[in-house]
C-alpha cells in the first residue's frame, strides 16, 4: 500500500462490481416463494379493490329496502348474494360495509403505530426512568383485556364512529409501544449503537440513522397483525351497538342485525361474519409470512 491511498480521491465513486443483495431484496425474494402469503395478499387485494372501486363503477344502493324481497337466498336475479332482513341488497351492503370495516381496521392501527412506535423507541433508547415511566403507564392499559377496554372506552364516550376509532386507537397503543420498546432495547445493546455514540452523534441522529431501520420491520409486522384484531373489535363494538349505528352498513352491525334471521336464511346471516373471518385470517397469515421472511438472517 502506498501513501496515495491516504489522499482524497476526488473522482466519482466507482460502481460496485456485482450489485449487492440488500436485506429487503432478500425479504422480497423469500416472500415471493411463499405461496400462502402470496394467496392471502391476493385475496386482500381483491377485497380492497372491490370495496374501493365497485361503488364507483356499479350502481349499488345499500339502503333501498323492500318488504316483498326480504331474506331472498343468494343467487336471486338482481341480488347476487340475496337480501337482508329489510330486503336490502346484501352484495351492496357488504361492499359498502367493507369500506367502513376496513377503515375501522386500518385507521386505528395506523395512528396507534405512529404514537406507540414513537413512545416505545423513546422508552427503549432512553432506558432508565423514562422507560419506567412510559412502560408502567402502558402496563395500566395492558392490564385490561383489549375488547373489554374498547367496550369500556366507547361505552363511556357513547356510540359513534369517531368514538369507536378513538377507543380502538387507545387500545392498540400499549401493545405496539411494548413491541417497539423491546426491539429498541435489543438494538440499543448492539455494539454498532455504541460505535455510533463514539462518533459523537446525538441520540436523535442515532435513532434516525441506526435504530429506526432496524426496528421498523418488526413493529410494522406486528401492527399488520393487529389490523385483523381491529376489524374484529370494531365489528364487535357495532354488534353491541357502540360503534356504527344503523342503517349504516358495517360488517359487525350487519352480523348483529341478521342474527335473528339465522334459522330462516342461514347463508345470508353468515355472510358478514364470513367476510370478517376471511379478511382477518388473511391479514394474520400475511403478517406471519412477512415475519418469517424477515427472520431469516443472511
Amino acid at each position: 500500500m502506498t501513501d496515495q491511498t491516504l489522499s482524497l480521491p476526488l473522482t466519482e465513486r466507482p460502481a460496485a462490481i456485482r450489485p449487492s443483495t440488500s436485506y429487503w431484496s432478500g425479504v422480497r425474494r423469500r416472500l415471493a416463494r411463499d405461496p400462502v402469503t402470496m394467496i392471502c395478499a391476493a385475496i386482500l387485494l381483491v377485497i380492497l379493490a372491490a370495496v374501493i372501486f365497485a361503488p364507483l363503477l356499479f350502481p349499488l344502493d345499500p339502503y333501498k329496502t323492500s318488504m316483498i324481497r326480504r331474506l331472498k337466498p343468494p343467487g336471486t336475479p338482481g341480488f347476487l348474494l340475496g337480501t337482508d332482513e329489510l330486503g336490502r341488497d346484501m352484495l351492496a351492503r357488504l361492499i359498502h360495509g367493507g369500506r367502513l370495516s376496513l377503515f375501522m381496521g386500518f385507521a386505528p392501527v395506523l395512528v396507534a403505530t405512529c404514537i406507540g412506535a414513537t413512545l416505545g423507541i423513546i422508552a427503549g433508547y432512553a432506558g432508565g426512568a423514562v422507560n419506567m415511566g412510559i412502560m408502567r403507564i402502558m402496563d395500566v392499559f395492558y392490564a385490561f383485556p383489549s375488547v373489554l377496554l374498547a367496550v369500556a372506552i366507547s361505552g363511556a364516550l357513547g356510540p359513534g364512529i369517531i368514538n369507536g376509532l378513538f377507543a380502538l386507537t387507545l387500545v392498540f397503543i400499549p401493545p405496539i409501544t411494548r413491541v417497539a420498546e423491546s426491539v429498541t432495547t435489543q438494538i440499543r445493546a448492539q455494539d454498532f449503537v455504541d460505535a455510533a455514540r463514539a462518533t459523537g452523534a446525538s441520540a436523535t441522529r442515532i435513532v434516525t440513522g441506526h435504530v429506526l431501520s432496524n426496528v421498523a420491520g418488526p413493529i410494522l409486522v406486528y401492527a399488520a397483525g393487529l389490523i385483523s384484531v381491529s376489524i374484529i373489535i370494531a365489528s364487535g363494538l357495532s354488534f353491541l351497538g357502540l360503534g356504527v349505528s344503523p342503517p349504516t352498513p358495517e360488517w359487525g352491525l350487519m352480523l348483529s342485525a341478521m342474527r335473528q334471521a339465522i334459522y330462516v336464511a342461514p347463508v345470508n346471516a353468515v355472510l358478514p361474519g364470513a367476510m370478517i373471518f376471511i379478511v382477518s385470517i388473511c391479514f394474520n397469515m400475511m403478517s406471519d409470512g412477512v415475519r418469517s421472511a424477515m427472520d431469516v438472517r443472511a
Binding site: Y23, Q190, D191, D194, A196, A198, T199, G200, S213, N214
Partner: peptide, 28 residues
Amino acid sequence: QMVFQDSFASLNPRLTICDSVAFGLRVN
C-alpha cells in the same frame, strides 16, 4: 476510537459498509 470484539454486532446490518464508515464523518 474503539474497535469492538464482535465484528457482526458492531456493524448495522441495514447499512452498506460505506454508509457505516461514512456515518461518523457525516455526523461531524
